[in-house]
Design a protein around this nucleic acid. Structure first.
Lengths: 182, 182
DNA sequence: TTTAAAGTAGACAGGTCTGTCTACTTGGTA
DNA sequence: TACCAAGTAGACAGACCTGTCTACTTTAAA
């Protein structure tokens, strides 16, 4: 068993890749840049990740854990009802590193070159919507509302990425939830 | 004045770039591929578009005209009421070349490298929502509904891109419109 | 008919990309 | 202590990228 030491080479690669891939995009980020910034030798890199695609897939796994973990914890912090959704997303949208959803960006960038990305994205969104579903009273049949909520959340994520401010996106989501819909 | 002849070199470049950029992404598409496929000499290409970025911006303009033209015409074909929205988007989502919104894809891919892209996208979406607004009775104050509709449409566009079928996305949008909201 | 703009093919420069390889060092375990 | 796994630095191959350049041809207007 291993107690916590300095981050291993693999961890350094992964966190560096995460930051660069999310911030600048996957195609825009060369292996060499990741190697330099994570202070690792090239051989070491390729021992852990035989190809860039392997790294990309591991990055998406890592990102999923990170994001879902944060999301659930933030929803809880905000009271764990459906009213928690907007303040939670507001935190994300207003963070200065915000560059949209890493999964949606990857689908746009790699769609047909790295086929797995779409399925990974579907799984990610499923987990996201499961967390949202947990905010609602379980008795009612919420399927229709959840489906509307799903597209509205996706739209808010995207608008917050290209608008100069996330306020309209948040306001739209808020209207939908406040009126209760259905 | 020029009567219609065979497509000019510039037009061939632009339509080829449109297809490749939309289908494979901008970074994934090299100038050489566009030149080969549009059957044009390299000098000719660079006479019309001094740099790849110039071509990208012209591509977005061209795409905007093309898409908005199609969108308005399709809404009209479907009766020009708010009920026309879902069947119109359904046509798009089910077309076999569908790869999401070219503008959203560009924002994800180029966000910080080509700053203009975000503003261009905002203008594009403004025009899209203006067309949607025209479907509603003008007297009512629809701002809130339109804002919800905006994020829902964006979300539907995105979901239709990563889901294996666009049906859930369309269903969500339909629910929102049918219940009338507000 | 001359001239200039717009077209052709394709070599080339200089950079970046992914991935391989050599040669050496360090640290923990058998 | 001897060994092996994991680390280091960095050269190199081969592909692809954007953009420039030379040299020649076609076309349309003055």
């Amino acid at each position: 068993m291993k107690t916590q030491t300095n981050p291993s080479a693999r961890d350094r690669i992964l966190t560096t890749a995460h930051d660069l891939f999310y911030q600048q995009g996957i195609r825009a980020t060369g292996i060499d840049k990741i190697i330099a910034q994570s202070q690792v030798a090239k051989v070491t890199f390729y021992r852990h990740f035989p190809s860039k695609n392997d790294l990309v897939l591991t990055f998406l796994e890592y990102r999923h854990q990170l994001w879902i973990g944060w999301f659930k914890q933030a929803l809880e912090r905000h009271g764990n009802t459906i009213q928690a959704l907007v303040p939670t997303l507001s935190e994300w949208f207003n963070s200065k590193e915000y560059r949209g959803c890493a999964f949606l960006n990857s689908v746009g960038e790699l769609a047909d070159e790295l086929a797995e990305v779409k399925q990974i994205t579907r799984n990610h969104k499923q987990d996201m919507m499961d967390a949202v579903s947990d905010l609602l009273p379980s008795s009612a049949d919420n399927d229709e509302f959840l489906n509307v909520l799903h597209i509205a959340i996706e739209g808010a994520i995207i608008r917050a990425q290209y608008d100069s401010s996330p306020s309209q996106a948040l306001k739209g989501l808020n209207s939908l939830i406040d009126t209760g819909f259905k």
